[in-house]
Design a protein around this nucleic acid. Sequence first.
DNA 1: CAATTAACCTAACGATCGTTCGGCAGGGAG
DNA 2: CTCCCTGCCGAACGATCGTTAGGTTAATTG
Lengths: 195, 195
Amino acid sequence: MESSQQGSSRKRLLDVSARLFRELGFHATSMRDIARAAGMRPASIYHHFDSKEAILRELMWGFLVELLSSARDAAARAHDARGRLGAIMRTHIRLHATKATLAFVADTELRALQGAAQQEILMLRDRYEELLQDVLRHGVEEGTMHLGDVKLASYQLLAMGTGVVFWWRPEGRLSLEAVVDQYVEAALRMCGIAT
Amino acid sequence: MESSQQGSSRKRLLDVSARLFRELGFHATSMRDIARAAGMRPASIYHHFDSKEAILRELMWGFLVELLSSARDAAARAHDARGRLGAIMRTHIRLHATKATLAFVADTELRALQGAAQQEILMLRDRYEELLQDVLRHGVEEGTMHLGDVKLASYQLLAMGTGVVFWWRPEGRLSLEAVVDQYVEAALRMCGIAT
DNA sequence: CAATTAACCTAACGATCGTTCGGCAGGGAG
DNA sequence: CTCCCTGCCGAACGATCGTTAGGTTAATTG
């Protein structure tokens, strides 16, 4: 039927591309760099992807879809606004920490996508922001949260949370769980919820 | 003595470079792009700068020096940890909002600098982080602030604050003062200070 | 006046870029 | 066996890159 190596080169290309895009940036990474790191020749990449941009597109799209669905699932399991905020933040930090390479690329290289591809990604990001903003709005209406502008607060929360990709390393001083907890607590405090 | 146009081309080059670096990214901006936007030929840029990287270096260095000195001044005018935290955050948001183009480039293009130039910038950033961490440490020791890990908290505060460059526009819905206030309040809440 | 210098130019350098073309090996299908 | 498809390759395409060499102009200086 199909080779046991099915898709292994493709996956390796995605892996090394993500790593190089993070280390050097999309535009500073050449197809020759990617080919070398994946153990093949530049021309061979085009058997798996239409273009360099298509690689970036798939990386970013994959991460954002996972981020969005994880957040939806987590929020659905909680019963009130406070629980949903905590669940979303917990998922956000976890995913950004454990998939830091992908998260970094997704958060940094939006400019490198063109036209429709960029719009697709922006749509996913907007839906993600709205998910959080809905929770915050409910919290304010319930009276459990106290904030000024809801959109502004969502930008504050997301910028803070996304920042974990810039410094956390699994082999570092702080464990993932400790880090996640402090981020969740910071989020709750920011929204005027005592812990 | 000296021409009234002294340095005007140089300044214009820095301005258009910052704008292009923000819009397209450093590596996606060519010297020809910069020259066209500044109204001169590519070769003429080299009368004012040694290289494309030298332009980025000057942009980033200039912004970080101003950021650091502004924060020091602001912190020195306050009398306790809480006041110093508020002053630093206020300055941080103000500067990132009013000089969003420079701030964006300084926060995004560190990878594009090489070797010693990158180290110089990292040193400035480290000093800035330490300034904030000292304030947080004092606040915890005084008992006015309640946080887990101080370094982690500083990363949270800075990531949150820096995020203002990604969305705020002067012609937008929220005034600079309203935005600054909400960021400062968020920072104080995050550190366990009731307002 | 002559000499110098700042500011800019045209033209081109070698390098590298993303991508394409045509082909080759090899395993499964008919 | 033949045919075809997958995966990869060498070689090269035209374009663009950062940068430089060498010159022109106009203003300043001694």
